[in-house]
Design a protein around this nucleic acid. Structure first.
Length: 195
DNA sequence: AACCCATGCAACCGCACAAAC
DNA sequence: TGTTTGTGCGGTTGCATGGGT
């Protein structure tokens, strides 16, 4: 995906792809000094060759100091399942109820972990494929049947579906908090540079 | 050791909506 | 009132990585 630099003259200076440490620091410094918002002009003023949308996304999903990354707790997982059953794919709405979690993280978590197992469970229980609507409905019944809201989290023992239920095996998946450099490092640098 | 495959996640894209002009 | 611009959201893509063979 090396589309960092576009070729046409108008977008020649627009960077795409993964953010570098330098870009992160520039963005953090700028927001620390000027605040967030008005992302297009922010990107220009900060000297970042990124779109406003890209800056906003990077800030909200990664650089914000209050963002929590990795290690979705069992409590959070149950909440996600409950709220998804209630609201569907309203990720930003769901994220508002999980402090420090972003809609993108929750969406990824749902799609890569939970939805996969729902699909497997559906096929195991029904022996046929279901469309997305049915998956969403199935998610409610599937989880509610094994995981009633008042069920104590520490006793939660979901079913093992053909040996692939690692998502629900305690302890829950431990994800790395690393991402090339730690946020603590970034903020330390930012604080040192900030003026 | 090398290759292949599945998985997780960061980031982009397209669309919708609201505010400003 | 129509157009432009900025923002937010959900869906999708593609790379990096780890595990299996």
């Amino acid at each position: 995906m090396d589309k960092k630099i576009c070729n046409n003259s108008q977008d020649a200076e627009v960077r795409k792809g993964p953010w570098t440490m330098e870009e992160d620091i520039i963005l953090m410094n700028y927001i620390a000094n000027h605040g967030e918002g008005v992302w297009n002009s922010l990107a220009r003023s900060a000297g970042l060759k990124r779109t406003g949308k890209s800056c906003r996304l990077r800030w909200l999903n990664y650089l914000r100091p209050d963002v929590r990354r990795g290690n979705i707790t069992p409590e959070e997982q149950l909440l996600i399942v409950e709220l998804h059953a209630k609201w569907g794919n309203r990720w930003s709405k769901i994220a508002k109820h999980l402090p420090g979690r972003t809609d993108n993280e929750i969406k990824n978590y749902w799609r890569t972990r939970i939805q996969k197992h729902i699909k497997q469970a559906d096929q195991t229980f029904t022996g046929q494929n279901l469309d997305q609507t049915h998956h969403d409905q199935a998610s409610t019944s599937y989880f509610s049947s094994f995981c009633p809201p008042d069920h104590a989290v520490e006793t939660y023992s979901p079913p093992s579906i053909d040996g692939h239920m690692e998502t629900f095996h305690g302890p829950f998946p431990t994800e790395s908090n690393e991402n090339i450099w730690s946020m603590e490092d970034l903020w330390s640098i930012q604080l040192l540079n900030g003026d």
